[in-house]
């Protein structure tokens, strides 16, 4: 369209997209979440080839391409922050009210970090390497928020 074209007839139309969907966690994802919910216990899956323990668990080691779905191992409810950021805006899809610390947490016994929320510290006190501990939710949502947050250990 040439610059300066006649815009007399141009206007904006409001639209909306509202559609239902369903997501299945699968066997591996379901066991991970129901164990957190029912036993307050966090489990990972170990790749016997590269010896990595994945939390959250996965059916396949994406590097070795090994089927590891049955190699469940227990990990600790404690771990350390390997990286973090501070979320400073509110939106309906976010799990907590801003500002809050969103961190990568490597649980003791795991080799991969889990993304979760750290509460109970001043925002400017959060640092890489700090020890944290899982605080489980009182009410279940059948999601990873059955761990409500992590708190300083």
């Amino acid at each position: 369209m040439k610059e300066g074209f006649d815009t007399t007839d141009c206007f904006l139309v409001d639209g909306k997209l509202a559609l239902p969907y369903t997501y299945f966690a699968g066997r591996v994802g379901s066991k991970f979440l129901t164990t957190i919910r029912d036993e307050k216990k966090i489990m990972g899956i170990k790749c016997n080839k590269c010896n990595k323990v994945f939390v959250p668990p996965r059916q396949t080691c994406d590097v070795c391409m090994e089927d590891i779905r049955d190699n469940w191992v227990d990990v600790q409810n404690t771990g350390k922050v390997t990286n973090f950021t501070v979320v400073r805006y509110d939106d309906k899809h976010l799990p907590k009210k801003a500002p809050y610390v969103l961190a990568m947490i490597q649980l003791d016994g795991a080799d991969t970090p889990l993304v979760h929320v750290v509460e109970g510290i001043d925002l400017d006190k959060a640092k890489i390497g700090m020890k944290v501990q899982a605080v489980f939710a009182k009410e279940t949502t059948n999601t990873i928020l059955d761990i409500d947050h992590f708190a300083p250990a």
Binding site: Y23, F24, A25, G26, R27, V28, G29, R58, Q59, T60, M65, D67
Partner: peptide, 26 residues
């Protein structure tokens, strides 16, 4: 219905079969 697998896991079944069929590794 495939309630037993998530999307990535379902895809992997086809990927695994194709690799095996070709006799290849990733």
């Amino acid at each position: 219905h495939r309630e037993d697998v998530n999307q990535a896991e379902m895809i992997h079944e086809a990927v695994r079969e194709a690799l095996d069929d070709a006799g290849l590794k990733m």
